[in-house]
Design a protein around this nucleic acid. Structure first.
Lengths: 152, 152
DNA sequence: TATTGTTATACTCTATAACTATA
DNA sequence: TATAGTTATAGAGTATAACAATA
């Protein structure tokens, strides 16, 4: 019997080989798999990826402005407003007048924000190792170097 | 004058080094950069990434079911309905009774769908080379192999 | 009972237009 | 005239619950 050559065949195992030859597909799938683990592990801190990224950039760049955050993280200004407001309401960050520009606001971590970021960064580093556990340290370095050649 | 050591410093250039040490950040940024080019180039065919992926899997897997597409592409069944309906309305695919399972529908490309997919796959392959133009052929192979070690 | 495909719907993410205060 | 931050809102993407038909 040869049912696979009928007019209406069915599929036993899905062939994804073409999609898997595309860099876009592979980067997207890899990113989604890491992001999924990230969201799970960061849920205890009530931090989404974007919250963590903003908190981290403020921590490493005290006095950074909203506009600078938008440029660095590719976020549109209207979409950052709620993120900043949320972190401010949780008293993880404070807004201070910008020293040179009356239009802008300098963003800073509070003590609570500094503590949370420190914990979050440890968790993030751990989770990254877990998500890439099938890679060697050398392979991780190579992978990051090649990815940056794409987007930087 | 040493304004950088004031109580409210400002940021000249944003330090993103911590985020750039994270695999999740790098895969996400690389994926977004390729996806952006993909959307631009595929707009002429009126195909979003998900439309192209579905069309490609149907083309390479005649008779595939919606459920199998959902599993392969990590799409939830309710969200696939509109995608399939759209491709069907444009007469790029046809739905045929599944040979063994009365609940399911086998999906197939029409002639128009086959033609569009062929063009789309050529465009996709070209655009991928453009998006990764700073990589050598060997680096591309390495990158894909390492990414698949993460998500597969 | 379980699964396929579907509807309805809610929630999140992303994008655009327009306003204010300041440069 | 241009920019930083904001509001309101629209659109796209993603999620859950529940249903009919079939296994």
């Amino acid at each position: 019997m040869n049912t696979d050559t009928q007019a209406a065949p069915h599929v036993e195992t899905v062939d994804t080989s073409f999609l898997e030859s595309l860099m876009g597909y592979n980067t997207r799938r890899a990113a989604l798999s890491i992001v999924e683990l990230f969201m799970q592990k960061m849920a205890v801190y009530d931090l989404r990826i974007v919250d963590f990224s903003v908190l981290s950039l403020i921590g490493h760049n005290p006095g950074i402005t909203s506009r600078q955050l938008c440029s660095a993280l590719n976020i549109l200004p209207p979409n950052l407003v709620g993120i900043i407001a949320g972190l401010d309401k949780r008293e993880l960050i404070s807004r201070q007048p910008h020293p040179h520009d009356g239009r802008a606001t300098g963003l800073h971590l509070t003590t609570a924000g500094t503590d949370l970021l420190r914990q979050g960064e440890v968790t993030a580093t751990d989770l990254e190792l877990e998500a890439t556990s099938r890679l060697s340290a050398t392979e991780r370095k190579t992978l990051i170097r090649l990815l940056q050649k794409i987007y930087r």
